[in-house]
Design a protein around this nucleic acid. Structure first.
Lengths: 108, 108
DNA sequence: GACGGGTGTAAGTATATTATTACACCCGCA
DNA sequence: TGCGGGTGTAATAATATACTTACACCCGTC
């Protein structure tokens, strides 16, 4: 794991709002609108937080049809365990990150 | 540990720049100006990062007099191991933020 | 006293993150 | 057709974080 990935993963979980979301999901999967009500935030904002949590694998989502016929986006907690030590960090720092080369490919 | 403390701790380490600092310190303690040169950032910026790292206990600093008589601020790596699971988070969320705990370390 | 090499911080700027508002659209039902 | 309850996203505002610049001051030495 390189330093950007590790940073993104830790940053995803290092947010009181997102911790609250994860804690709420511990009780079982919930669809987005219901989850928004429970944690007391707007759907739009929740989507932003869910995107970060999902990108780092903390939650999974699935769009399903309810018995009433309406589509429900269920979000469920994914099992995880992250351990951070100086070795974790040193390894990440040592791992070569693919050079991004912002548009500049000329040799000189 | 409440959610604000956990968040601050994780946020402190969830930064590529600060990971680089920690990795550099693995080789032994270094004084601030030298560390700034090694990680390639300004002293002022480094101070900001060190403040966050020290606030969450990842590094310790000590101002000492060098043999030449000039004051040197040494910064050293503090041992730590952080494990994050859904239980860690749920506990933090459940902990009332008014509670304050002392004797904090990262051995858990 | 003018360097060179340190510490320490205030103030301003740039950028990233978080949060709000508003919209388009789908489905079942009275 | 007009709700009520969903999904999904764009545009914008507010706020937090990261970074730069500039300064004051200390100590040895040439």
């Amino acid at each position: 794991m390189n330093v950007e990935q590790l940073s993104a993963t830790l940053a995803a979980v290092a947010s009181p709002q997102r911790m609250l979301i994860l804690a709420e999901l511990q009780g079982g999967r919930v669809h987005v609108s219901e989850l928004a009500r429970r944690v007391g935030m707007s759907r739009a904002l929740l989507y932003m937080h869910l995107a970060k949590l999902e990108a780092s694998g903390f939650v999974t989502t699935s769009l399903e049809l309810s018995p009433e016929g309406t589509a429900l986006k269920h979000v469920a907690l994914a099992p995880f365990s992250i351990t951070v030590t100086i070795d974790t960090i040193a390894d990440a720092v040592a791992t070569a990150t693919v050079n991004k080369q912002k548009g500049e490919n000329h040799e000189f």
